[in-house]
């Protein structure tokens, strides 16, 4: 955002000569103005905001490793299960399409017609963490004639 040098400049510009010091801190042999600048700069220092290094003992390291391995296995199983499900769905779609084509080509043609203007409905809800006050909208009436309906 800004360099240390520019900050020093801006800070020194605003430092007024102080009338007195309440107590003396001479750890760096600095005058009070400079010491204040150092203190203010130290607020920006990354080292003072970083936590101590996380050191695990050997047992805990092994445990951590085990947990991470189990997690990756869990994820892998889940993904593989979903993929196999998709694979099965794709095959059953293919099978149904082939069957339909062989017994009734007319229905097959209708089933494969391009659906122009087909959109995902706006009314469908995205899952949220907690349900809405009105969970389901029951009072639906179909649109009157002349309006578009899928």
């Amino acid at each position: 955002m800004f360099t240390v040098r520019s900050t020093v400049k801006t800070i020194t510009a605003h430092v007024k000569p102080t009338q007195q010091l309440r107590y003396k801190r001479d750890k760096a042999g600095l005058n009070p103005q400079l010491e204040r600048i150092v203190n203010q700069l130290s607020v920006m220092s990354a080292a003072r905001k970083q936590p101590r290094l996380l050191k695990l003992c050997d047992e805990d390291y092994i445990k951590h490793r085990t947990v991470m391995k189990a997690w990756s296995l869990y994820r892998k199983n889940k993904i593989e299960h979903n993929e196999s499900l998709l694979e099965k769905q794709y095959q059953s779609m293919n099978e149904a399409a082939a069957e339909l084509q062989s017994i009734n080509p007319k229905l097959y043609e209708i089933a494969n017609e391009h659906q122009f203007g087909k959109r995902f409905p706006l009314e469908i809800r995205t899952p949220t963490d907690f349900p809405p006050r009105q969970i389901w909208f029951y009072d639906y009436f179909p649109k009157v004639d002349g309006s578009k309906q899928q």
Binding site: K63, T66, V67, K69, A70, W71
Partner: peptide, 10 residues
């Protein structure tokens, strides 16, 4: 808390 479950899974 998580370690026993992870151990069990593996």
């Amino acid at each position: 808390k998580i370690y026993p479950l992870a151990y069990d899974l593996l």
